[in-house]
Design a protein around this nucleic acid. Sequence first.
RNA 1: GCGCCCGUAGCUCAGUGGAUAGAGCAGCCGCCUUCUAAGCGGCUGGUCGCAGGUUCGAUUCCUGCCGGGCGCGCCA
Length: 659
Amino acid sequence: MGDRAGDTQGRNMELLKPAIAAELAALSTFAALGLVAEKIAENLAKPPKPEMGDLALGCFKLARDLNLKPPELASRLASAFAAATGALVLHVSAAGPYLNLRLNHQAAISHTLHAIETTTGGDNPEHWRFGNSEEGDGKTLVIDLSSPNIAKPLAVHHLRSTMIGYSIKRIREAQGWRVVGVNHLGDWGTGFGKLIAGLKKYFPDVEKRARAGDPQPLGDMSVATLNQTYARFNAESKENEDLAEAGRHEFSLLEQHIEALIGGTRAGAGQDGEANFRIWEHTRSISLAEFERMYAHLGLSFHLWPVVDLQHARVLTAEPDVFYRDHCLYVGESYYVAAEDLCRRIIADAVDSKVAEESEGAIVIYTHGKDKPPLMLVKNDGATSYHVRDLAAAIYRHRHWHAHELAYVVGGEQKWHFEQLFKSLELLGHDWAKGCLHVEFGLMMFQQADGKWAKTSTRRGTAIMLEDLLDEAVKSVREIMASKNPELSQTPEAERIAHAVGVGAVVFNDLKNGRRNNVKFDWDAVLDFEGESGPYMQYQFVRMGSVLEKYREKFGEPSFASGEAKLLALPEEWLLVQLLADFPAAVARASRELEPSIVARALIDLASATSTWWSATKDTRIVGEDAELSLARVRLVNAIRKVLGRGLSLLGISLVERM
RNA sequence: GCGCCCGUAGCUCAGUGGAUAGAGCAGCCGCCUUCUAAGCGGCUGGUCGCAGGUUCGAUUCCUGCCGGGCGCGCCA
């Protein structure tokens, strides 16, 4: 089996540990020493080499509790085992401080395959429950994901927040949580003042139409033009303080207008405010249309939470849990200003309770002492800052969805902001702030002409557009399909497959490594569909499907109940079963650590072992002449297929039956 | 300067205080009449950044240093 046999990762068989530990705990020697199942299970681990055993009981901690030397305990347990004949534990032997266990493979295989077969009925991966748990039953997580800015195109770095967040949503749901995904749209802030000022300056017609009451004053302007307009004005305003001031003024008018509209605490801004409001609203709808297209590529569905249409602001569905499972929501930052007036109420509250204070014309909270920069609620021009909008959003989420945890999938460069945010919530008396988590992730870097890596930036034009990346990946897949599977590429489903595999490749590439790592963007690496890649995972899934189809052609519908586990005697088959038995633990850990890469890594190990097995059975085939052997192997094939499929769908990657 | 993240094979990265640290890519050598070769096998490749400390045991925990990244009041 080569080096992989020595790999201890992912072969802990967590699924079987409770049963194994219970079996040992029932033995008189173990019981006499007070070794209960739970303590045994905690100390079971994988030996470095399979020859040593299938599992090992490390005796270090157990011996210390009993005032014995670890090797002494191990040998005492070993010598007492001789008479016992367990169902799962076949044999034990002491090896220094370890008690090595050899398992009854047949029993372990049956146990594992049965567990998978009883939880993965039907054809819909959403219904494959192997790896699910009830850990989060009755708890709600509100997760902030994607959160792009209006008037900017989606770039590759947005993929990180979007897919890490979406995958965490799915993983948490698999662990029983109710998860509300919220896309906290950046649709508010001084930037919009600059954009409006820029539009008025460079496109005088826009202002005319807005003043005349046209609800679409921007005509058919594209997001790219909006972004360029902002960038141009922003650059010019750095040289010219008057322009900067004009930008702040336009935003202030907009905010005044909306606050007056909702009967808030401030006076209106007349026709100017109204015109700005129309421009802002149209900008937002143009951007949303583009976001929709991108999210559709990724297979995500968002619904816009009513923001400015106060008449119809209400809960969107009568069946919220189903709704939240199938969709995420857009809730723009403007919601907390426009529809709830939460921002001003929080500000007033913070000032009244002396948590906030005035400083240099602004209202701030010193969250970490006077020598650290404070969190800013209101800027010296009277406009709200994004900090106060985040406070409002947190309070709203906790109150509205009764959230037990609030997670923010936002880049690590905003770590300080979230530390301040959570501390401010605490200072304002919200003890639930303990359940707030910043799910930070690394930056997307690109290589500069001098060879050094730097942060990508939409403004500086160094960002790669998400659409270009997805297009490029799908195009590559199309080409590979045309050469490797020409018949399939002529069929009507070819385009759908190319899309699923191409997008899946990009997503898997993003999720396979720990989220905190910076990502050095490299076209060649993203478009490399060999090795630890999305297409490789899809490919093994497709192969398993083909084998099942082959079996049906040859022997008819398989009856797994009569598949004999003892016929699965190859070392490759044992390895696969161990990996399968470890999948639920991987999902549970991914949920706990909010880390999709743990699931992705489990899939890499499983897919790799599958491919090795495929080759190892080349001579007899998985489905061969021997009906009984074929049936036993097809049971394993079915289990692998279900687990690979479930894992990919937890990562937000769609499945294909052929490629 | 202060704070946070990272440092493991040529490159990109896994690694839950435990036995001899792993994969993918790149390089070299092999393997397609069969259920898809987007694959499989083999070889080459390591002072786990450095130095202390805690521990029966440290790549893993703590401290200091070095190197890279990010952040540090009116962008979000």
